[in-house]
Design a protein around this nucleic acid. Structure first.
Lengths: 347, 347
DNA sequence: CTGAAAGCGCTTACAG
DNA sequence: CTGAAAGCGCTTACAG
């Protein structure tokens, strides 16, 4: 089966009627519609997307940009795949397809996005890993391509975003550690310019301040957000004079490397050093002692992202009248054993 | 900037010439070409892909289908992202873009692929996670869409594929364990109908046979290919009468759960039970004792996949005259400590 | 309810 | 070397 023309000839009917029947337009005889649908199914006809897109001016495709930089490959683990189910559950309602656009390692993310947008392969974009200043946001705004970013940015202005509650997480982590008697609390932050690092650190600082604890820059450890980074963080922790008694990790899988390095040095996590991770991860469940971390549903986040995005698209906004343009995504603390001990006052 | 027409008007030149200049056709005055290129850059013009595709009959996009089923989400980890760099390095040479097509969890992979193919959103497809009998292969063959599958299948016939050397891995794992004195060697195989499970098991059986060891079905443990599956595998291992002294895992991250379950029972991996994993994974590096496993380069595999695919496409085949249609991808054993002990003859 | 025709944005023979 | 025109496969006003 080639095109709608062949199908129409086969049915001895005009292509216009075939198109209307297939697209569920009301002004088609039910008998005719049935014949068309049956023939299409039988011959395996599906409309060529380029033809549709060109005529309609929309692709019915939503793009999820993925940066597979050396660092993020190990970093993102299954984050994106976890999001897709939620995204698709919403997009499917509107017959929109989701495609993932992996930016090549050696290509500038900005140029890549620009190219994809200019070629009009998608109607809208979801971007993530927003930098502190992110030119992609300006690009999309100017090009008037609907988009939502996972992660706010100084470039955001009035553009829609959803961001994880890094501030809340940092605060409740510090609160919990302080309640357990800790005063020297280190933090493992990303070495890149990703915006969440700034927010996380700000939350940490203000939490310390609330508790009357002086901020000590030497307790901020900058590493890659990976297991290797965790190992490195452990290594650096061990070298700090007057060693901190607790550490908060920006990335949960860091804990694997951290535990390893600590154990090598005879320092037992959860006994000699309190550890709080970030996101709950199936993989990290098997760590011993169990990691205290924060729970969120990637599926639900995907749902919310899709709704926020659609709310900005004229063709779909009426379905989502109450959608917030910006949103801080809450996480729930899941107590583990990695920070359950209380520090003795003497220490 | 809207379309080529606006750009042409702006330059006071015909759209045909603009198109030819932009596409590097030889029959364009160099002066004209420069002007066109400069104006396009300045105004940010990039050809609308739908227009091009419709006219040329090609999309210049290659699709990588991803199944994000409940199981594979945890399973695939960064496998696909690891492939993309290699794939893109080859595709970029031909100005082909790679997009990832995540099949929704609740949609049949066959129907999904059918839809994507019929809509002609891509010129060619890369599929993976091939089942023993895989209708997708018949579909693509019949539709004459160029494709390559990562994983052979009984449905493969003459179609191109690259598969990891599961047979070789199973054989060398058994050889190594036997050399260390093991006779009761268990294997953790996938519970799904994925084809690699069959090949892995066949390799295991024939290796045992070579060594004159009777195949014992009770030593084949079927679990999910995830950490949880590894935990489960550990659990089942511990229940087997005359407990096996070694186990081979089809999926490396199973080792995390396996170690955990064994340790809970006071059984020390690498001392009381020999363990060999499959693929080397950064994540598994931090396991203690270090896991004996098999090394491969995802990047190189991506390169090979892309070349194999392009070799089947008339427009590109002349670039890859020597490409094999089918290929077994070798892996190299990396000795760790998880199976380094020798079993005493007495045992 | 159906058909004939226009046109979405391109590329590419075909003239000149 | 350039322009005018056809046509890729659709959808959608517009007639009837």
């Amino acid at each position: 089966m080639k095109g709608i023309r062949q199908l129409a000839e086969h049915l001895d009917i005009s292509i216009g009627t075939v198109s209307r029947a297939l697209n569920g337009k009301p002004d088609v005889n039910e008998e005719t519609r049935k014949r068309v649908l049956a023939a299409a199914e039988e011959l395996g006809y599906v409309a060529n997307q380029s033809g549709r897109s060109l005529r309609q001016g929309t692709t019915n495709v939503i793009g999820l940009m993925i940066e597979s930089s050396k660092e993020t490959i190990e970093d993102s683990d299954n984050f994106f795949l976890g999001l897709t189910s939620g995204l698709q559950s919403v997009l499917a309602r509107h017959k929109l397809d989701l495609i993932m656009l992996p930016c090549p390692t050696d290509e500038d993310p900005y140029e890549y996005l620009k190219r994809m947008v200019a070629r009009r392969v998608v109607d809208a974009m979801i971007i993530s890993a927003t930098q502190r200043v992110d030119k992609r946001i300006d690009l999309l705004s100017k090009a008037k391509i609907p988009f939502v970013s996972l992660g706010r940015s100084q470039s955001s202005g009035n553009s829609p975003w959803i961001d994880l509650d890094f501030d809340g997480v940092a605060n409740s982590a510090v609160d919990r550690l302080v309640a357990h008697g800790h005063r020297r609390i280190a933090i493992a932050a990303p070495s890149s310019d990703i915006n969440l690092g700034y927010i996380f650190l700000d939350g940490y600082r203000s939490a310390l301040e609330r508790h009357g604890i002086a901020y000590d820059p030497s307790l901020v450890i900058r590493v890659k957000t990976s297991e290797q980074g965790g190992y490195q963080a452990g290594h650096e922790l061990l070298q700090i004079d007057n060693r901190p008694t607790a550490v908060i990790l920006i990335y949960e899988l860091m804990a694997i490397g951290l535990y390893r390095r600590l154990t090598e040095a005879g320092v037992i996590p959860g006994r000699d050093l309190a550890v709080i991770g970030f996101r709950e991860e199936p993989r990290a469940k098997f760590l011993q002692p169990a990691l205290t971390c924060f729970r969120m549903s990637l599926h639900d986040l995907g749902v919310e992202l899709a709704q926020t995005l659609l709310a900005t698209m004229p063709a779909y906004s009426h379905f989502y009248p109450d959608s917030e343009r910006n949103m801080i995504w809450p996480l729930k603390l899941i107590p583990g054993e990695s920070d359950s001990f209380h520090l003795l006052a003497a220490q």
